[in-house]
Design a protein around this nucleic acid. Structure first.
Length: 638
RNA sequence: GCCGUCGUAGCUCAGUGGUAGAGCACACCCUUGGUAAGGGUGAGGUCGAGAGUUCAAUCCUCUCCGACGGCACCA
């Protein structure tokens, strides 16, 4: 007999060699039905694998995270089996589970088409219906390698060859399909169910290296129930509706075109939003004793050579030849800020010196990297550099973190994660300097009450950094804010200050941004609010819409009064029915519609309708002005 | 940059080896209508660019440009 310990702490005895599934059945049939695997000690095991010794034990249900993971992995196997049945010449490589589903990387001369995916998906459903048992086998390594080679599966053979020497080579068999896999898997394909769907085909390099062959990657989604699948597909649709590229067009905020790839044409409403956010952040940093500067965009290559950018990022810089000179458009503002710092002699009394710029930067991003406003070639950073002494790093870090948290909070973002990236393998500066830098940056982050995850080895070559990551509506993470410690640039560009001792010292430089780029942040802002901006940030805060021409004169007065009160309003006196105007203005996501007709003109009122609501309230004109003015106060002035 | 898909009216999209169509938007007319689409008429396109095949190309082939989805990249 063996003793099985359950998660609630209870123990029970079972005969040696009992399977996890059998144990689950003794608890309840519904649990056994929900079970996809079991946890035996630290490991996840197949339901059908015999258990030989005393162990902590837990049933993994299909709805749990670990369970879903197994389901998705199983779906990948069923996918691979279907592919091998339909297109036997295909080599299969890896097929892991990922967020919301799985992917499988395939090698085949011919491209898979969307039609092929349909056929594969149909075959997958058939395989599920066949209810093929999955069995686990432990193979000798060389046997496995030879087997896969004999099957023409050279990628698989390579994977096995590269497995760590001590690892067991386990094989899973389902029907005629044999695959290398760590497991665990469901007892049979029938248990998988039908809540999966193949989504798209993409290219991916073998082992993620662009020197390797390109494989065809098929993405699929898989869930424990068909309802979950449906919900997921609905979520995708909803996310698409708030895609900033779509809303940018629909709301007439901006556009992009062939002649300016990677750059933005801001339309009046988009530019209004841009200026509102720029001015907001300007207010915030001014209150924190930043000084704002503006530096050149076109600079001689000698400066970039001195700063190290030429060597390290030259490929991403736009270069301009001018007679005997070589100039480059700035990809970032830091070297320029050091030039300002270097003007005149700085004293330790001048530190910390917080220098900010809305810096227009150009980076020659790879064409495939461009994406709406989130990845552009021409952008404006809410850049800033804090020049300080080493002993001021902690306090400056703390201050910045608090400012950033406050800004994100005021703008409505609460879902924030932080990564602390420490020294990379290739770096400048001594270990002693890095020790100090990491310790202080960490201490500063701690002092602000932030929790963060470690991102080992991902720091910049000149110093460790904090990355602030927002989650957008589609669930994508966006790195917006950043704080980077830099001991190298001040050295390279020879920034000094005079210390208390009367001698020259090197300042430390903190590179920092809250939005990152205005463009990217606006994209995130649009998606976060699905275009329904808070009143203070809405480009057009209200539209006065007339019912008939009888209301025109009064509507004009309302319009002028609202404008005089500092509100961004428009007047809609078109010859259209009021319901038509309401529909159109609602689709434009105008926060308030003010309906003005004969009745309102006589009473000196407006009928106010809030976006998303159906109820209206009729208020005196002055009351409406008060109400909107109050609501339109930016968060930092409340 | 790489792999794949796509590019037709301002927008969303249909379509065909014999030089094109819908809905919305736009213009004009009728309508003055009270909270998510009133009606009529009209204008609008070198079918992304270039080359090739063909009697004939928006459609087939190739090259280029761009967009989209991934991959790689993201100081």
């Amino acid at each position: 007999m063996i003793t099985i310990r359950f998660p609630d702490g209870s123990n029970r005895e079972f005969p040696k060699g009992i399977t996890g599934w059998e144990i689950a059945k003794t608890i309840s049939t519904s649990l056994a039905k929900e079970a996809v695997a079991v946890r035996v000690g630290e490991q996840l095991w197949d339901l059908t694998r015999p258990i030989d010794c005393d162990t902590p034990f837990e049933v993994i249900k299909r709805t749990s995270d670990a369970g879903l993971d197994i389901l998705r992995h199983d779906t990948a196997h069923v996918f691979a089996e279907a592919v091998k049945e339909l297109y036997p010449e295909t080599q299969i490589t890896i097929g892991p589970s990922i967020q919301d589903g799985f992917f499988y990387d395939l090698f085949r001369e011919e491209s898979f088409t969307p039609d092929d995916l349909k056929h594969i998906e149909e075959r997958m459903h058939e395989i599920v219906n066949r209810d093929e048992p999955l069995t686990r086998e432990v193979w000798d390594r060389q046997t496995a390698i030879d087997f896969f080679k004999s099957q023409g599966e050279f990628f698989k053979a390579e994977i096995i060859t590269d497995l760590p020497a001590g690892d067991e080579v386990t094989i899973y068999r389902q029907g005629n399909f044999v695959d290398l896999c760590r497991g665990p898997h469901l007892p049979s394909t029938g248990k998988l169910g039908h809540a999966f769907k193949l989504m798209k085909i993409a290219g991916a390099y073998w082992r993620g290296d662009h020197n390797n062959p390109v494989l065809q990657r098929v993405y699929g989604t898989a869930w424990s129930t068909e309802k979950d699948l449906q919900d997921y597909l609905t979520r995708l649709e909803e996310a698409e509706k708030r895609d900033h590229r779509r809303l940018g067009k629909e709301m007439n905020l901006f556009h992009m075109q062939e002649e300016a790839v990677g750059s933005v044409f801001w339309h009046p409403k988009g530019w209004a939003l841009y200026r509102i956010l720029e001015n907001y952040i300007r207010d915030k940093i001014t209150a924190e004793d930043y000084v704002e500067v503006k530096t050149p965009q076109l600079l001689d290559s000698s400066l970039w050579e001195a700063s190290g950018h030429w060597e390290k990022f030259g490929e991403n810089m736009f270069v301009v030849k001018e007679e005997d000179k070589t100039l480059a458009l700035k990809p970032m503002s830091c070297p320029c800020h050091i030039q300002i710092f270097r003007q005149g002699i700085k004293s330790y009394r001048d530190l910390p010196l917080r220098m900010a710029e809305f810096g227009a930067c150009m980076r020659n991003e790879a064409s495939g990297a461009l994406h709406g406003l989130t990845r552009v070639r021409s952008m404006v950073q809410d850049d800033g550099h804090i020049f300080c002494r080493e002993d001021q790093v902690k306090e400056e870090t703390r201050k910045f973190c608090l400012l950033l948290l406050n800004v994100y909070h005021e703008l409505g973002f609460e879902d924030l994660t932080i990564k602390f990236s420490d020294r990379p393998a290739v770096r400048a500066g001594s270990d002693e300097v890095w020790d100090k830098a990491e310790t202080q940056l960490e201490a500063g982050a701690r002092a602000s009450g932030l929790s963060y995850t470690l991102n080992p080895g991902e720091g910049a070559f000149y110093g460790p950094k904090l990355e602030f990551i927002l989650k957008d509506a589609i669930g994508r993470d966006w790195q917006c804010g950043t704080l980077q410690l830099d001991f190298v640039l001040p050295e390279r560009l020879d920034a000094t200050y005079i210390g208390e001792d009367g001698k020259k010292h090197r300042p430390v430089m903190l590179h920092r941004a809250i939005f990152g780029s205005l463009e990217r942040f606006i994209a995130v802002f649009i998606e976060h609010y699905a275009g329904k901006f808070p009143l203070w940030a809405a480009p057009v805060q209200a539209v006065i819409a007339t019912v008939t021409q009888e209301g025109d004169a009064y509507a004009e007065k309302v319009y002028q009064d609202l404008r005089a009160a500092g509100l961004r309003v428009e007047l809609d006196t078109r010859n259209e029915k009021i319901s038509y105007k309401i529909r159109e203005l609602s689709l434009q996501k105008i926060p308030y519609i003010m309906v003005v007709g004969k009745k309102e003109a006589e009473e000196g009122t407006v009928s106010l309708r809030k976006l998303g609501g159906e109820a209206q309230e009729t208020l005196a004109l002055h009351a409406v002005i008060d109400k909107l003015r109050k609501e339109a106060i930016p968060p930092h002035k409340r």
